[in-house]
Design a protein around this nucleic acid. Structure first.
Lengths: 243, 243
DNA sequence: CGCCCCTTTGACGTGAGTCAAGGGGGGTGG
DNA sequence: CCACCCCCCTTGACTCACGTCAAAGGGGCG
C-alpha cells in the first residue's frame, strides 16, 4: 500500500489536497472511512450539541469516533496562559476523534449547533482488527489527515496574514464545493479563524478587508464570503489549499 | 482506534494490534516499523549522500523507503519565490519516504554526510498487503508522524521565537536521548533551524544568545548545545516537545 | 426597541524581519 | 605547520507586519 493520499473527491470529507490533481491515486481499497462506518450503524447514536458546547476535552478518555452530520466542530488545544490553537475544523461529513491514544489529544467544541453520529471506539477497534479493508481505510484517513496537517504547517511557517487567509478560504471552498460557484459559508467566527491561522482577530479582520478592497472577495455578511477572483486567491495561497 | 502515538522509547509493547482500545500508550506492536523492515533486508541497498546532496525531490516518483543509518536528512518544500519550509529532520534510526502517494511530497536533502538503507517501495507495499502486523506498524508510524506534525503546528501557530527554539531543542534532546546528560549535538545549521521554525536565521541566533544569557543553555561550539536548565526549557516549550 | 456580542477600524507598540558589517572555525593549499 | 579563505554564524541598526489597546459600528434576538 503506498499510503496513497486520496487527492481528489471534494465533498465527503477526507480530501487532503483538493487542489493538486493529476496523481493517479487510489488508496485502492475503494471506500472511504466514513462510508465504511456504516457497518457499525447498529452501535451508533445521534447526538446534538449547542454552539460552543464541548463534545470532549483534551485528556478525556477516548471513547468515541464522531461523524459530523451537520454543523461544524473545532478541534483545539489550550495553554495555561490562555492561548488557543485550533488544529482543524470538522465540517459536515468529516470524522474526528479517530486519531490518538487512550486519551483525546484535542478538545472538540461545537462551532455552531451540531448533529453528530457517534460510534463507540470499542466497536471501531474491533472492526479494524477483523477487517483489513477497514484498516486500510483508517490508514487512508490518517494519511489524508497528515497531508492536511503538513499543509497547515507550511502555511503557519511561511505565509503572511493575507496569504494565510487566502489559503484558508481556498481550502474551505475546496472542501465544501464552493470553488464551483464561489459562494462560501463560514460557520466559524473571526476569532476561530484567527486561532486556526496563528493570528489575532484584528489581523483577520484587516486581511478580510484587504482582500475585499483588492476585489478578490466580497463579504455580503460576516459569515458569507464570495470568491470573486479564485485564481488570484489560489495564487496568494501558494497554490496549495489548507484542508 | 488507539493509534498509539507516543514515540517514547521503551516500547515493550504487548498488544497484538495497535488498534486495540485502552492499552496503555506506547507504540504497542512489540516491533516498530524500522524493525519490521528487516524482513526486506534482502532487497535493501545502502547509499551514501554528501552534505546538501538531494536524496529525492518533491514531485519525483516515490520509489523508496529510506532508513537513516547515520547522519541527518531534512524533508522540505520550496516555493517559487524562494521560501523554504523544513517539515522534519530525520535522524539516525528514523524513516522517511513512507507517507505520500505516487510522488514525493517533500524534497529530501542530506544535512550532513548521510548513510541510508534504502528499500524499494514495491516490496514495501507488497509486504504490507501480505502482512497485517506490518500494516499495523505502518499505521503506528503514520500516527506518530501525525502527532509530531500537530505539535509542530501548535509551535508555529502559538509560540514566540524563544519558545519555538526551546521546543525544538527539547524535542531534539528527547529524540536523541540528550535529556539525560543535557549534551545536544546539532547536525543542522542555523538556517535549517530557522526554516523549520518559521523564523529567520538572525532571529534564531538572537534566540540562542538570549537562552544562553539566561543561563538555560551553554553553547560550547556552534553545533553543540548543553541544556543547563532543562525544566525551564521544557516550561518555555509549553511542556510539549516537537518531535 | 434596545441590549449584547461580535466585528471592524484606528492609533500606537513591539517582536521579528531586513540590511549590513564584522567574526570565527575548519578545511585547503602552500 | 601555518596562513589564507570561505562559509556560516553573530551582532547591530533600522523597518515593518502584526499585536495590543481602545472605541465605535452592526446585526440578531429577546
Amino acid at each position: 500500500m503506498s499510503l496513497n493520499i486520496s487527492r481528489k473527491e471534494p465533498s465527503p470529507g477526507v480530501a487532503a489536497y483538493p487542489l493538486s490533481d493529476g496523481v493517479p491515486a487510489g488508496i485502492g481499497e475503494g471506500e472511504n472511512l466514513q462510508h465504511r462506518l456504516g457497518a457499525l450503524r447498529e452501535f451508533a447514536r445521534t447526538q446534538h450539541f449547542a454552539r460552543n458546547e464541548a463534545v470532549f476535552q483534551e485528556g478525556d478518555r477516548a471513547q468515541a469516533i464522531c461523524h459530523v452530520v451537520s454543523g461544524a466542530i473545532r478541534l483545539c488545544r489550550h495553554t495555561e496562559d490562555g492561548r488557543r490553537h485550533i488544529a482543524e475544523f470538522a465540517l459536515g461529513g468529516d470524522l474526528f476523534g479517530v486519531v490518538g491514544g487512550a486519551t483525546q489529544v484535542f478538545t472538540a467544541e461545537a462551532v455552531s449547533d451540531v448533529v453528530l453520529r457517534v460510534y463507540p471506539r470499542v466497536q471501531f477497534d474491533r472492526l479494524s482488527e477483523r477487517e483489513p479493508g477497514f484498516r486500510a481505510s483508517v490508514l487512508s484517513h490518517l494519511s489524508s489527515n497528515l497531508m492536511s496537517t503538513q499543509m497547515h504547517t507550511f502555511v503557519l511557517g511561511c505565509q503572511s496574514a493575507k496569504e494565510r487567509l487566502a489559503s484558508f478560504l481556498v481550502g474551505l471552498a475546496a472542501r465544501t464545493g464552493a470553488l464551483e460557484n464561489g459562494r462560501l459559508e463560514l460557520s466559524m467566527g473571526r476569532q476561530d479563524i484567527a486561532d486556526h491561522l496563528g493570528l489575532t482577530i484584528e489581523t483577520i479582520c484587516r486581511a478580510v478587508t484587504a482582500l475585499k478592497n483588492a476585489g478578490l472577495i466580497a463579504v455580503p455578511t460576516t459569515h458569507r464570503i464570495e470568491l470573486r477572483k479564485v485564481d488570484a486567491l489560489i495564487g496568494l495561497s501558494g497554490g496549495r489549499a489548507i484542508h
